[in-house]
């Protein structure tokens, strides 16, 4: 990992979060390795949709790994950790996808966590209308965040905010979670004011984008449920388990 140094306008929380960021190459190698393993009870060469489902499962496992290493989250009991992740799992996956596309920087294709590039024309031709519309809606948010010049520091802070975005009544130890929310909000505000003084409302604009991340994640869950009802999801799928888990 790159060393990160502090400096004026660089909140300590953001520095710590940068150090916790998983190495994209290592994540890619792990997921590619998993996808190449023939899984029990699954055909040797699963259909592209089955591969996408396993890819999403493995991406979520990387997100859980990240959360477990996060300050505050690692201090919580497992019940609260589960409650937080059950609340935001789909948003974290959507935001992970969005940020990968911002780094990818191409409007006519998407980059998968495995490093594969898929042309949007291919998505239009092969993915079905529901998935295609999801991908296009996500691409609109990518453009919006690109125009806002979302940087890595803001990305890690927003991801942390998503993880802790839950009301107290659902948690056993809300005081820790509330403290994390307040620190992350303050860090993001300080950072944006200091590094983007010409864009006075960047903080508010970024928070507004989280509303769209939530809306996208709802649409993604509806899509998953639709596939589940059509018996198209692989067995033992982690995302379907998350979808079916009793909500708080």
């Amino acid at each position: 990992p790159e060393p990160f140094s502090g400096g004026p306008g660089m909140p300590e929380l953001i520095l710590q979060l940068l150090q916790l960021e998983p190495d994209e190459d290592q994540v890619r190698a792990r997921i590619v390795g998993c996808l190449q393993e023939p899984a029990k009870g699954r055909p040797d060469q699963p259909a592209p949709f089955g591969l996408l489902c396993r890819m999403a499962d493995q991406t979520f496992i990387s997100i859980v790994d990240w959360a477990r290493r996060c300050m505050v989250f690692k201090e919580l009991e497992v019940a609260d950790q589960m409650t937080l992740l059950q609340n935001c799992w789909s948003e974290l996956l959507v935001f992970d996808h969005i940020y990968r596309q911002i780094q990818h920087g191409k409007e006519d294709s998407i980059l998968l966590v495995t490093g594969q590039e898929v042309e949007l024309t291919t998505v239009a031709a092969q993915a079905g209308s529901l998935l295609h519309s999801l991908v296009l809606r996500a691409q609109e948010l990518v453009l919006q965040l690109h125009a806002l010049q979302l940087d890595r520091q803001e990305f890690v802070c927003l991801k942390f905010l998503i993880l802790f975005s839950l009301d107290g009544k659902f948690l056993n130890n809300y005081s820790l979670v509330k403290d994390a929310q307040e620190k992350a909000n303050a860090a993001l505000l300080d950072y944006t004011l200091c590094h983007y003084p010409h864009c006075g409302d960047k903080f508010q604009q970024l928070l507004l984008c989280l509303v769209e991340v939530r809306a996208l994640s709802m649409q993604a869950k509806e899509y998953l449920y639709h596939k589940h009802l059509g018996n198209e999801m692989p067995r033992n799928n982690l995302l379907i388990e998350m979808l079916q888990a009793k909500q708080t």
């Binding site: 859980v64 497992v78 950790q81 589960m82 059950q86 009544k169 888990a245 009793k246 708080t248």
Partner: peptide, 26 residues
Amino acid sequence: PCQGAAGRPAILYALLSPSLGARPSV
């Protein structure tokens, strides 16, 4: 206030619970 065991996602629980040791195969 949190969800009971009936609605608990088992794979997530296994991923989060350090006492379970080995990771589940997903």
